[in-house]
Amino acid sequence: MSIILLISCSEQGIRNNNPNLPNYAVLIDLNLNLPEYSSLKFVSNAVLIPGKGVRGVVVFNTGSGYNAFDVACPNQALSSCSTMTIKGINLLCPCDNEEYSLFSGQSKLQYPLKQYRVQVNGEVLRVYN
């Protein structure tokens, strides 16, 4: 007797089931040799890429890899105040002054940051969903 077991799983476990944020296609290639992205070679540095995703994408060097998150406040409906800003190693939502860790994407609220995948290919980072 044979038993076939089908398991569905997402790559890297990234889930973006947030009713506040739409799912837009993201594909960004960042060359770390270019001056605007070279700071990403160093731990705890972040770079904002406007005009991508919902409200822009921030890429962050964790020291053991890279994280990429949308800068739309995940616990707010889209509005004039729902675009976050970089505050050290966090993103700050001006709607509610909530901070989200760029290391984990977490805060004390219900929804974490909307995360994108990052693939490292030499000196090029590919951010995608």
Rank of each mutant, 00 (worst) to 15 (best):
R117W: 01
I49H: 03
A46I: 09
L27T: 13
N129G: 15
T83S: 12
L27C: 08
P112G: 11
C73F: 04
I49V: 15
V118I: 03
F60S: 12
Q115S: 13
K52H: 10
S79C: 03
P35C: 05
M1P: 04
C93M: 11
V57H: 02
D70Q: 13
N31C: 01
G53M: 07
S2N: 09
T83C: 08
V54K: 00
S104Q: 06
L40S: 03
L27H: 15
Q119T: 12
K114P: 02
C9I: 01
G13H: 06
V71M: 06
S80H: 04
G105T: 12
C81A: 13
V124T: 10
L113H: 07
L32T: 05
E11C: 06
R15V: 14
V127S: 01
S104R: 06
P94Y: 03
E36G: 02
V127D: 01
V58K: 07
R15Q: 13
S79W: 02
V47G: 01
A72T: 01
V26W: 07
I28R: 00
G122P: 02
M84I: 06
G105K: 09
K41W: 00
C95P: 10
L30S: 00
V59L: 06
L48M: 11
S44K: 14
L92T: 14
P94Q: 08
P74K: 09
I28Y: 01
G122L: 04
L102D: 11
D29S: 07
F103N: 10
L34G: 00
S44I: 05
S107F: 00
N18I: 14
Y116D: 03
P112D: 14
Q115C: 03
L6F: 02
M84V: 04
L91M: 09
N129W: 02
E36M: 10
Y66T: 12
S79M: 03
S64G: 12
N20S: 05
K52V: 03
I86P: 06
N67M: 13
Q76C: 15
S101L: 04
S82A: 11
G13K: 11
N75Q: 06
C73K: 03
M1R: 06
F103C: 04
